[in-house]
Computed example of a mutant assay.
Amino acid sequence: MTILRLFCSLLLFTTLLLGDIEDKNTTSGNILSKTIFSVGGRAHLSTIFTSDQSTYFAGKIALDSKEKGKDIYANARESRLWTKTRTPTEQGILRTTLEIDFLGTKDGKADKNDYYPRLRHAFVELGSFGFGQTNSTFNSVSALDTISYPMDDTFVRQFLLRYTYDKDMFAFDISLEDPKTTLLDSSSSKIITKDELLFDLILRSRYYPVWGEVGIAFLSRKITHNSSIYDTKDSKYGYGINLSGRLKTFAMDDIRFNLHYGEGSGRYVAYGAFSEGVIDSEGKISLTPVYGGHLGYRHWWSHDLRSTIAFSYIGADNNLDVLQTGLDKVTKESYGTQINLLWVPVKNLLTGIEYAWAKREVESRESGSTNFFNLVLRYDF
């Protein structure tokens, strides 16, 4: 409960501080008295039915050879709380964002759902500069309007330092981000997680005319490994390219897409389904090429009723000459489809149902498929 207490304490402190500033400094012209303070959040209830106790993530779909069973579960873990401030200064607008949700634990207790808070955003922006934890600059510029995430989702949330130039429908971002790396040990199939010495460098350009938005991002990173067994050191240059966007079609309809390719960019896609590479028997790194994309079409039946149909795919060229064991755990490819119906009966209240189907194949050539029905009730305040 530490994060929740911190959030509530910060909320109370900021409220009292701003109230005191307003009382004492409004007539004196103190710039802090112009701070705009806002709070909000989301109450979110999900009810999910699965055909085989899988989850809709590329690396966690149960294989057909495994014991399966139907499952249904409901939770409110995706509910959120946030607080924001906006203050004019001589150096530009100072903005802060602090947001939490309740995805910190997998399951609540049988007699009560005491889910723990998880930090989503803790970000500060001053003019064109920003720092803290927030969505990565490598992420897609436009997300699918679906309840479940696409199979290939290019999404990471982490700490970063970012500069943004934004003018006349064109924006450019450059950021230094968390250099965390995941490598697969070929002899044991264990995942090794470590922090690199150099930050990941990401460059992104965005163009957003009246007909939509298009963005392309480039990831550059150095991946290293020190082997205590073989007394060797190795490093590889990793990179990734991500093209994404949203194109308007008829009336309010639009097409949303994402394409990506990378070597050593595994953790930036598909929520950890792939590692950056494999460590061979001599302690050397072999990077894993990862590629994929998604395409979705959103149609508005009316001003308060809409649907999206989407297809997504993610795959990897795992080095089978290096991998020695655990091929039944190493994902080769996954793909899925989604179709939904979302209704907004009153402002800020969303209700919807989505059907999703997905399949996963591992390097041992085993595969598994699954079906999902997801019902959501959500109110933003």
Rank of each mutant, 00 (worst) to 15 (best):
K194I: 05
Y165E: 06
V330R: 00
L375M: 13
S369P: 02
G296C: 09
Y237L: 15
P88T: 08
E90S: 14
S9P: 08
F102D: 00
I191A: 10
H121F: 07
V362N: 13
V290S: 02
Y355H: 10
K66A: 14
D101M: 11
F57Q: 14
D145M: 08
N30I: 02
H294V: 02
F129P: 06
F129T: 01
R77T: 12
Q338I: 01
A171M: 04
S312G: 11
L198Y: 11
L176E: 11
T14I: 13
K248Q: 04
T325A: 12
K236Y: 01
L203E: 07
D321Y: 01
Y355G: 03
G130R: 05
K70G: 15
N25Q: 13
K84M: 13
R360S: 10
I21N: 03
N374V: 00
S312I: 04
G212M: 11
E99C: 07
S244V: 05
K190E: 08
I314A: 13
H260D: 05
L63F: 11
S275I: 05
I339M: 14
I48N: 08
L63I: 05
E22Q: 11
F218P: 09
D166N: 15
D152Y: 10
W300S: 08
D317K: 09
L247M: 14
W343F: 15
L126H: 05
T331K: 08
K112E: 13
N374W: 15
G277Y: 08
I36N: 10
D111G: 03
R298T: 14
I31R: 08
Q324L: 10
T55R: 09
R298E: 10
S205Q: 15
I223Y: 07
S367I: 14
R221I: 04
Y379Q: 08
S38F: 13
I223F: 03
D380S: 05
L10C: 11
S189Q: 01
L183C: 01
L18I: 13
M252C: 05
I31S: 05
H294N: 15
H294R: 10
T14Q: 06
D153R: 09
E78I: 00
T325G: 09
L10R: 02
F129G: 03
K359Y: 11
D304Q: 10
E22P: 06
L243E: 06
H260M: 14
K34E: 00
G104D: 04
I100Q: 07
L81D: 02
W343N: 06
I353D: 07
T87M: 14
D234H: 00
G215E: 06
S128P: 15
D153C: 00
G240P: 06
T2K: 12
G292D: 05
S235K: 09
